[in-house]
C-alpha cells in the first residue's frame, strides 16, 4: 500500500497500484508518484548497503580467528580474533602495514595454514573440519591463488603450469591442453605457451599465474600482493584483469595489497593492524585522487 498526497487539493490517496490523476480534483499526480518511487529506490539501495539490515550471501566467514606463532619459547600473536564476512562476488582488499597479520589472514582463508583458535568458513564449510583430501579438493576447485612472487613452477612451461591444477582435478589430457591454451590466449600469452617462466617478463608471469588460478573455475581468487613485484603499468594491467574478471564472471576477489590502484577498484577495504581489524571502508565512502595517479602512470 502506498500513500500519495495530491499536490492541489491535499487529498490523501491510498492505493496498492499507481494513480495518475487525483480522484477528487483530477490534478496530474505522475510527478508525485515518480518522486515517491525514486525515494523508495534510494532507500532500498541504502538498506542493501546497510549491513545491519541486509543479509548477504557470504562466501567466506571468519569467527574469532587467532593465530599464534611459536618462536622457541616466545609466542608471537599474528592474529588476535578476526571476524570478517566476505560476500559472494565481492572485490575485497586487505590493507595493513607489514607484520600486521594480513598474510596470516590470507593463509588461513586460503586453507594454507591452520588457525590457533576460531574458525574460517568457506561456503559454510568449516575449513578445520575438512580431511586432507577435501582440503586439497577445496584448494584445487574453489580457490585460485595468485602470489607476489608469481610462484610458477620453474621447470614447467607456461602451458604446463596452467594445466597442472587440471591434472589434479582429473581432467582428460585433450580437454586440459585445449583449456590451458585458451586461458593463456585470453590473457594475451597465446604466443608464449611453451616458454619457461624465466623466459617471461614479470607481468607475463603474473598473467600465467592468473590463467593458472582460473584453471578449475574457482569461486574465489586469493591474491597476495599481486602487483608487489610489478612496475606501475603492468601492475595496473593485472588489477584491471582481476577487476574485469570479478565483474564479468562474479568471482570473488580477495587481495592483500598496499597498492592504491587496487584500493580504487575494491568494493570494500579491510584495514588490519596488530592482528585485528581496525576498520572496514566502503569504496564509495573514501576519496582517492585517481586522476593524478593516472597522469603519473601514463608518464611511466
Amino acid at each position: 500500500m502506498a500513500k500519495y498526497t495530491c499536490p492541489q487539493c491535499g487529498e490523501q490517496i491510498e492505493t496498492a497500484g499507481i494513480v495518475t490523476v487525483c480522484p477528487q480534483c483530477h490534478a496530474d499526480m505522475s510527478a508525485v508518484v515518480e518522486a515517491a518511487g525514486h525515494a523508495l529506490r534510494q532507500r532500498a539501495a541504502e538498506l542493501i548497503r546497510d549491513d545491519s539490515v541486509t543479509t548477504h550471501e557470504y562466501i567466506v566467514r571468519t569467527r574469532g580467528l587467532t593465530k599464534i606463532y611459536k618462536m622457541g619459547d616466545v609466542e608471537v600473536p599474528a592474529l588476535r580474533g578476526v571476524d570478517l564476512d566476505i560476500r559472494r562476488g565481492e572485490y575485497l582488499s586487505i590493507m595493513g602495514p607489514s607484520g600486521s597479520g594480513k598474510s596470516t589472514l590470507f593463509n588461513l582463508v586460503g586453507g594454507l595454514d591452520k588457525p590457533t583458535s576460531g574458525s574460517c568458513y568457506i561456503n559454510e564449510t568449516d575449513m578445520a573440519q575438512l580431511s586432507a583430501h577435501e582440503l586439497a579438493w577445496q584448494r584445487c576447485h574453489t580457490i585460485g591463488y595468485i602470489f607476489q612472487t608469481f610462484n610458477l613452477i620453474p621447470v614447467m612451461t607456461a602451458l604446463e603450469n596452467v594445466t597442472l591444477p587440471m591434472i589434479f582435478a582429473g581432467m582428460s589430457s585433450d580437454e586440459m591442453l585445449e583449456r590451458g591454451r585458451m586461458l593463456l590466449e585470453l590473457v594475451g600469452l597465446g604466443g608464449r605457451l611453451h616458454h619457461k617462466p624465466h623466459e617471461l617478463s614479470g607481468g607475463q608471469q603474473q598473467r600465467v599465474a592468473v590463467a593458472r588460478a582460473l584453471a578449475n573455475s574457482p569461486a574465489i581468487i586469493l591474491a597476495d600482493e599481486p602487483t608487489g613485484n610489478l612496475d606501475l603499468h603492468t601492475g595496473k594491467e593485472i588489477i584491471e584483469l582481476l577487476k574485469e574478471l570479478n565483474v564479468e564472471s562474479g568471482v570473488t576477489v580477495i587481495s592483500a595489497t598496499h597498492d592504491l590502484k587496487m584500493i580504487d577498484v575494491s568494493d570494500r577495504i579491510v584495514h588490519i593492524r596488530d592482528g585485528r581489524i581496525e576498520r572496514i571502508d566502503r569504496r564509495e565512502d573514501i576519496e582517492l585522487e585517481v586522476g593524478t595517479m593516472g597522469g603519473e602512470e601514463t608518464a611511466v
Binding site: 590473457v187 582460473l214 573455475s217 584483469l241 564479468e248
Partner: peptide, 16 residues
C-alpha cells in the same frame, strides 16, 4: 587480452 571471454571460460565461479 579478451577479459569478457576469459570470464566466460573461467566460468561463473559463483554458479559452480
Amino acid at each position: 587480452m579478451d577479459v569478457k571471454k576469459l570470464a566466460q571460460v573461467a566460468g561463473g565461479g559463483g554458479a559452480k
